[in-house]
Nucleic acid binder design. Structure first.
Lengths: 148, 148
DNA sequence: TATTGTTATACTCTATAACTATA
DNA sequence: TATAGTTATAGAGTATAACAATA
């Protein structure tokens, strides 16, 4: 059993509510900053997972993405057709395959991050100095929170 | 033309990147905390928009949700069938209709917020005091950012 | 004649069930 | 016999085009 978490007081509850609302709204607007309209959200998500976790088999990808295996077969085939992943034989088990992202995919993801960062930076530029200093301090904590 | 925004320095760019990544990841996990599995994301989103903006015509909803009018006809019909919205005649234009959420919908949304807040609070309870103080200070700034 | 909303129809995405190949 | 992946098929969800009612 992991360490017990503290209990939050009423002020904290207000902050939690504010945090949830802001995160949901910001993410909705960030998602609209798409770099390639020809990729479905599912395809984009698989590329993101491959970038985070490296190569994976179709079965592993299906489990990570909470999608059934036949759906992943289709998604991978679409990505392969666009030159964003390649399928390689599994070194130890001839039933399985290994899905690996291409350099083209890495470049596209980097471009996507760049575009969303630019949009967010434009927004952040409209805050005053103190407000931005507060957010800059909070950024690493938010990242920790997101990975808990 | 609105006020010019400041330019961000390299440290700021790192913070922006961290912020974007954390917001996207947190929102993905928050969305999984669903209170009603029988509502599609589109239906949930329309209810959220109605809660924020009050009553609206189907056309206004289609524009706000970035969906075509026939799709909104269908979504509204589904919500109506579940008793979450009612359709009323438009007071000035007999071509239009007014979509209004019911008390049942408000209760469901409140329950949804409550569940997501509880999940987030549980996560926040695992941060130490200093980290949480930093986030509490940042919450209102994030909300301002999300509404810019 | 333009606009609001709906109906008819096709396309995309995902799921379940059945199949093939390998362990 | 069990597992990884694919193929076949059906069910949501959305879009485009054509239509009805009102401005």
């Amino acid at each position: 059993m992991p360490e017990l978490s503290r209990t939050l007081d009423p002020d904290d509850n207000a902050a939690v509510n504010s945090l949830r609302s802001a995160v949901m709204r910001l993410s909705r607007r960030l998602k609209h900053q798409r770099v390639d309209e020809s990729l479905s959200p599912a395809e984009m998500s698989v590329l993101g997972t491959l970038a985070r976790c490296g190569s994976a088999t179709p079965g592993e990808l299906a489990r990570k993405e909470h999608v059934q295996p036949p759906s992943m077969t289709r998604i991978v085939a679409l990505l392969e057709g666009k030159g964003l992943v390649v399928l390689e034989p599994h070194p130890e088990d001839r039933r399985q395959k290994v899905v690996r992202q291409t350099e083209q995919a890495e470049a596209m993801l980097e471009e996507s991050r760049r575009k969303r960062n630019a949009w967010l930076a434009e927004l952040a530029g409209q805050l005053d100095e103190d407000e931005w200093a507060t957010l800059r301090a909070a950024a690493p904590v938010l990242e920790k929170l997101a990975h808990l």
